[in-house]
């Protein structure tokens, strides 16, 4: 068996989806944990310093490249799989199966992922691009550290109700995408032991509710001025 086959056969392509999916899940933990610093109620100091740290070392920059590569691989592989799989049944059924036997969100992973992609484009443009490539306001904290005022940018961005709603749509899509994707990723990677499957299912449901909910609360609490 060639190395390439391990990642290009029908099962191999799912390995790629599972591996990239798990990496992205790990990223979400870091992202949500760091962003939760906005609720420190210190005018955004802890958050701004934490966000600055995430871009301050070469290790982080390498991880950043890895993250983008992973996202792109996950997206491209998903569309390739979706298109290939759709071509396997040229004539469909008169009476579709619908929800008999499967959850709707497990069949609409492609559409949910596409919604997340649209959200991501706006999200990256809103925060990552200004912080990484454009001029943006800075703040200085004692003992004299000058960092980008991302907290201020968040406050500005989330005065726009449409953007808040778009972010909420992104969070809902993410929740359903994870609800299936979390456990499915581990199945694709070959976790078949029933004890682990039950554990992963439980953690997966918890994760896909708690993490998107925490993300959703960020624009909401900014819009409603809950954080100063």
């Amino acid at each position: 068996m060639k190395w390439s086959e391990l990642f290009t056969s029908s099962v191999g392509k799912k390995f790629v989806m599972g591996l990239t999916g798990v990496f992205l899940i790990l990223f979400l933990i870091v992202h949500v944990g760091l962003n939760a610093c906005i609720w420190a109620m210190d005018g955004g100091q802890m958050f701004n310093l934490a966000a600055n740290f995430m871009g301050s070392t070469v290790v982080m920059r390498i991880l950043e490249i890895g993250l983008f590569a992973t996202i792109i691989l996950h997206i491209v592989q998903a569309y390739v799989l979706e298109l290939q799989n759709r071509r396997k049944r040229s004539i469909g059924y008169q009476v579709p199966m619908g929800n008999k036997g499967s959850k709707w969100y497990s069949r609409y992973m492609g559409w949910l992922g596409t919604l997340i992609l649209f959200f991501l484009i706006v999200h990256i443009r809103n925060f990552w691009v200004p912080s990484r490539w454009l001029e943006m306001p800075e703040v200085t904290y004692p003992p004299g550290v000058t960092v980008h005022d991302l907290f201020g940018l968040m406050k500005d961005t989330f005065t726009n109700i449409w953007l808040v709603l778009l972010y909420l749509l992104g969070c809902v899509s993410l929740a359903f995408h994870l609800m299936h994707g979390f456990q499915s990723a581990f199945r694709s990677l070959g976790v078949y032991n029933n004890r682990y499957i039950h554990l992963i299912n439980g953690i997966g449901i918890g994760f896909s509710i708690i993490v998107p909910l925490a993300f959703a609360m960020m624009p909401i609490s900014m819009y409603l001025n809950w954080v100063q």
């Binding site: 290939q84 497990s106 069949r107 992973m109």
Partner: peptide, 10 residues
């Protein structure tokens, strides 16, 4: 020409 698995459970 069979497809791959999405773990929908159908």
């Amino acid at each position: 020409g069979f497809g791959s698995c999405t773990s929908t459970g159908a």
